[in-house]
Simulated scan of single mutants.
Amino acid sequence: MKSQLHWPDDPPLNINRHFLHTHLKENGCSSEIVDAFMGHWDAGQEPWASYSTLCPQEYRNLLTPIIERLMVRLGWKALKGAAL
């Protein structure tokens, strides 16, 4: 990556997470949705707890088109894993 990006130093190890977080926010995802996706929450804010008000279908419907457009733009495709 260093040679491709022409950076003077090594990129941070979690550059992929920064990229995805920024992309989701720039494409209209709320902080609540982005934090749930990235695994960022504090006690009492867990998106998948018994009394959470985050709807899994709404969560999926918000993220899917944004992630699918990103994958197409970058030329990525989903691959079937060994477990499936």
Rank of each mutant, 00 (worst) to 15 (best):
T22A: 02
P65C: 10
H18A: 02
V34W: 00
H18K: 06
G28E: 04
T64M: 11
N27A: 00
D42P: 01
Y59E: 01
W76F: 14
F37A: 09
P65A: 08
L5V: 06
P11I: 05
N16S: 06
L5S: 07
M38E: 09
Q4K: 15
S31T: 15
P56V: 10
S52I: 07
E46T: 11
L13M: 07
Q57V: 09
L24T: 00
E46M: 07
A49K: 15
G44K: 05
A82Y: 14
P65K: 09
I66Y: 02
L13V: 04
H21W: 04
F37Y: 14
Q57S: 14
G28W: 06
L79M: 13
M1A: 13
H23L: 00
A43I: 15
D42N: 13
W48D: 13
I15V: 10
N14L: 05
L70G: 04
N14V: 04
D42M: 11
M1N: 13
E26K: 03
V34C: 05
E68C: 03
G75H: 04
R73Y: 04
V34M: 01
K2D: 08
M1D: 12
L84G: 15
H21Q: 09
I15L: 12
N27K: 01
T64H: 14
I33P: 00
P8Y: 12
F19W: 03
S50C: 03
E58G: 05
L84A: 14
V34T: 07
Q45I: 05
N27H: 13
C29R: 02
L70E: 05
I33G: 01
E68Q: 10
I15S: 07
M38Y: 03
L5I: 06
L20K: 01
F19T: 07
I33H: 00
I15N: 07
N61Y: 08
